[in-house]
Design a protein around this nucleic acid. Structure first.
Lengths: 194, 194
DNA sequence: TAGGTATGAGACAGACCTGTCTCATCACCG
DNA sequence: CGGTGATGAGACAGGTCTGTCTCATACCTA
């Protein structure tokens, strides 16, 4: 296997992940059958099952791939600005662009949580990892300007706002501006408690 | 049909709704089959299909029943207190108790939105009605102490907080206190803009 | 050229899905 | 007693689900 030419295995595997992502996003997890995925990806069923031992593991793979991509994008955005307020602002910017994108269908992780509510299920755990990652990111940003305790609860509040804004955006109600103002009020309040 | 004795039709119908609610809440909508519902409710399949023309309509009925129940409970709680802050506080109280309840599995409406993402689908519309109802309720409470424009965006922010808190509660992360503090900051900020 | 690997194509199993149909039964009511 | 409406029980159709299996076919490399 030449190291310069990408492995065909990797290509097929990623192609399945991308195709499954698009279908899961639009139609949901249980409503999207394996047959639909392989038809859309134009691959044989066995090709998929050779890469992923089960549909559940494919779902986890899709979620983890999207989570990594999300983290990379936020990393990049954070480097563009200096102050904690600006970094938080960039996170809201990211979501605002996402809400306006043509194929926005809500948060895939929240949807996964809705369909896999068992805390022991691998999909549930993958969702928890992603949400905790975002919360930790905001928390460490806020710790630059407030004590850790304040930063923890403020980060939780910001995460709630973002999740809520995503849900409202899915219902066609633009609320990112309100979320932004509320976030500013929360941060200001945490900066100067009482 | 005697008006004093409740119609057996109504009883069976409600029994199906209640049983379906418990199963949808725990396992999701697509993952819960008709066969499971009628087995758990201990009724014949035809009895169900005589009351509900399709599974989708049963889902809508379940959602609407829960929405009516929710509205009644909030109506009652609102009458116990006087100030807008207290009324909003009662809404957060309700959610706090809900999060602590033994069979809490997240918001059924949010889950329905995850599985029925088509805005034209009756289930989607039922979800939008419920969320808009809660937002309107908070908005009219807030209009007692701030201009309508401020009340609208503050209500949207509070709704986002509540939805986000529900999602975090489902992931086992208690965040209602943080949401409460954030709500106070939002309302204070809207009361005295700038 | 020979061999190993990835893939394609599709049959197949066994279960589950929604929704319809028939026939029997039971309760109530005039 | 006779009739009516709600219900029970279960077969049935037609489709879809996940996952496994076999066999043929490319393709790259040694």
């Amino acid at each position: 296997m030449n190291a310069m030419t990408p492995s065909p295995t990797t290509n097929k595997r990623q192609h399945v992940v991308d195709t499954a992502y698009a279908l899961f996003k639009r139609d949901g997890f249980h409503a999207t059958g394996i047959d639909r995925i392989i038809a859309e990806a134009d691959i044989a069923k066995m090709t998929m099952y050779r890469h992923f031992p089960s549909k559940d593991e494919l779902i986890v793979e899709v979620l983890e791939h999207r989570a990594r991509r999300f983290e990379r994008q936020l990393d990049r955005l954070a480097q563009e600005v200096a102050t904690p307020e600006q970094k938080i602002g960039k996170i809201f910017d990211w979501h605002e662009r996402w809400f306006r994108s043509a194929d926005f269908h809500g948060c895939l992780f929240a949807h996964a949580l809705a369909e896999f509510g068992d805390p022991g299920h691998p999909v549930f755990k993958a969702v928890a990892r992603q949400k905790n990652g975002l919360k930790r990111r905001m928390q460490s940003i806020l710790e630059e300007v407030m004590p850790p305790g304040q930063a923890e609860s403020a980060a939780a509040a910001l995460l709630m706002l973002i999740e809520g804004a995503t849900l409202m955006a899915q219902m066609g109600q633009p609320a990112i501006d309100g979320a932004r103002k509320a976030a500013a009020a929360i941060i200001a309040s945490a900066r100067t408690p009482q």
